[in-house]
Design a protein around this nucleic acid. Structure first.
Lengths: 368, 368
DNA sequence: CTTACGATTGAGACCGGACTCACATGGGGT
DNA sequence: ACCCCATGTGAGTCCGGTCTCAATCGTAAG
């Protein structure tokens, strides 16, 4: 129908105005639905717009209103279903409020993240939701704030940055699940995370990721409440890539006093840990108990299905979007955020440790 | 340091020009690195820009160059690791060529997809990569083309739309893997896909998704080559959501002449199919063999690990980006695309069917 | 029959860059 | 000494909208 080549210059308000025989200003008013326009003019303009297939140039509009009706999202790893689900929460909420969402994936690379933030700022998004790769370096995030763009952090806090953070409080569930492991008889409970940190874990040191800090804190709480001493050697940070995670898991399972329960700090770590366990020929939960963060669909397919800690990820995403939009609409107003809780989902990967089994058998024999 | 409130008006070329005591035009030239500028002026301008922390307004630039140095990507389901990985291929390639990438997720919803395309067009991206949810409705894609923006399709063709498509050729691997199943003794081989279609599968009808069409074609080829008759009842489209997929899997396994091998058309379908098999108390591969498309990490964790068909997803993404960029740089030029092949990865989920086992046992007994 | 006031309307500035055009300036060639 | 052309430079236009402002119109009030 139309010339399919590239020249197809877009029709502008001026074109529409000419066709409708009115001034550019009037056409713009009718199209933009502002100011006073007589019914006669409005009708003619809209008809002309329809006829010419007029599409407003959003860029031009953004340029002199300063608003783009778009929010930008920066995540580290879109391959991680955790972020995928959160993204849906964000999208749905934003869409309902009339905002478009554009996403940039950084592959957990700090440089890429800085770049992503710059790009989104340049495109004049109205606000940003960022799941920062590193909570240590956040100069680029401060820039967002300085540029007067609302910012909401997702999943991780940036200490020293006064910005709303939407995340589940992981301490209670970490405590609960550790207590459950202790109750099952475990004493050597290991925690594995890819969180990067200079040097090995020590109690009391400030961790860059509040999420991980809470998971460890809750664990330590439960241990102390049970009269046990949290062991620094059993908390392994800097787990790195898949091979490195597997090496760490092997190490934990083959030590003189091996870990009898492993906790994976997220679904990606879990993948490698389970693989390592299987490669060692150990069975879950008979030889070693396993617990993981992130309720991914595949966790139900292993034998046995895995006991997981589940967060309301979709809701958290939705809430982040909601907070951001409120911030965009009422700048400066202090907003309050709902607190989210994670829950422990008992499936089949936690059991009594081998030594415990022996003890039970012995006491049963003694009783009979 | 700076006033942290929102007023912080951005510094513009005009500001820089004033500070450097030159005309706006000269400042713009020095900043934009075009035209003729004396060393003296350039120096002063750059110094002033640095001093004032000048950041070009990308929107304004885009508005009168028509180029945004950004490519837009529209995918149906970013939660699907398949797209996540492809996205990385796209990002890496685009970044290397100096393009930014923005992504919009549609949740496989056609309306959302139309919207996404509109938004990206409005933001004046230089080109689009789209994995269309439905190959049947592509009016919005035609609009991209009409607007003179390069477009590359990912994973799925849109028949009747003259646009480059980057995807692996699934026919050979479908044929190979089906042949493998046949060789293992299977005669009742079922295929399950969520592809939406009016009515059940019939031979020879045009499927909206070329990916699925190829998978089925390859399968039928292998069957015919083995002298078997492709059975329409064993190809199940419209599998729908998780529950629906499970119901279909159950049906296939409980028919009078049940399927002895199941093929899941993608990793998401696979999740539900395996779950259904497990819930029926059937064991893979003893009671039923299983084969799936998509080599997801979790497929190695099940017992037994699953035999999968793997595509070079990252490379396909990279190639799509590469094709799009070539199209952006040389409009109109016909580009040729590499052909990608998928490969069958033997793991442990395919074995001889039960009946076959019996037959083997019997013949072994007869021979002894 | 004036006057006044709200509704309409058009001209034009403006957002922040890119780019055109006319006008210096000056060194090289003859 | 004179012409030519490359290099520098500033004024101003344009992109496609939004928005201000002053002028115009109609009509109800005085």
């Amino acid at each position: 129908m139309k010339n399919s080549s590239s020249r197809q210059r877009d029709t502008t308000v001026a074109d529409v105005a000419k066709a409708a025989q009115v001034s550019k200003a009037q056409a713009a008013r009718a199209l933009g639905n502002y100011g006073a326009v007589s019914d006669d003019v409005r009708e003619r303009v809209l008809a002309a717009a329809e006829e010419l297939n007029y599409r407003p140039n959003e860029l031009a509009r953004t340029m002199n209103t300063g608003k783009s009706n778009t929010i930008g999202v920066v995540v580290g790893d879109i391959e991680n279903p955790h972020f995928g689900l959160a993204m849906r929460g964000i999208s749905d909420t934003a869409k309902a409020a009339g905002f478009d969402v554009i996403l940039i994936n950084t592959g957990e690379d700090h440089v890429a993240e800085v770049d992503a933030v710059r790009v989104l700022l340049e495109k004049r998004v109205d606000g940003l939701i960022v799941a920062p790769a590193s909570s240590a370096e956040y100069e680029h995030l401060r820039r967002v704030h300085d540029a007067g763009r609302p910012l909401v952090l997702f999943d991780r806090k940036a200490p020293g940055l006064d910005v709303p953070v939407v995340a589940a409080d992981m301490t209670p569930v970490a405590r609960e699940s550790t207590a459950y492991l202790i109750e099952s008889g475990h004493r050597q409970i290991a925690f594995i995370s890819t969180l990067e940190f200079e040097g090995p874990y020590r109690h009391g040191m400030g961790l860059a990721s509040s999420q991980i800090a809470e998971r460890i804190d809750g664990m330590n709480q439960a241990l102390r409440e049970a009269g046990l001493d949290p062991c620094e050697e059993l908390v392994r940070l800097n787990a790195g890539d898949a091979d490195s995670i597997k090496a760490i898991a092997r190490e934990l399972l083959l030590m003189p006093e091996p870990a009898t329960a492993l906790i994976a700090s997220d679904g990606l770590v879990a993948l490698s840990v389970v693989e390592a366990v299987q490669e060692l020929g150990l069975r879950i939960p008979h030889d070693v108990s396993f617990l993981m963060y992130d309720d991914f669909p595949w966790t139900k397919l292993t034998t046995p299905p895995l006991t997981v800690i589940s967060q309301p990820v979709y809701d958290i995403g939705a809430s982040a979007a909601d907070a951001l939009i409120r911030l965009i609409r009422q700048p400066g107003k202090v907003i309050e955020l709902p607190v989210f809780q994670a829950t422990l989902k008992h499936r089949g990967s936690v059991g009594a440790p081998v030594s415990q089994r022996k003890r039970k058998r012995e006491s049963a024999a003694a009783a009979s």
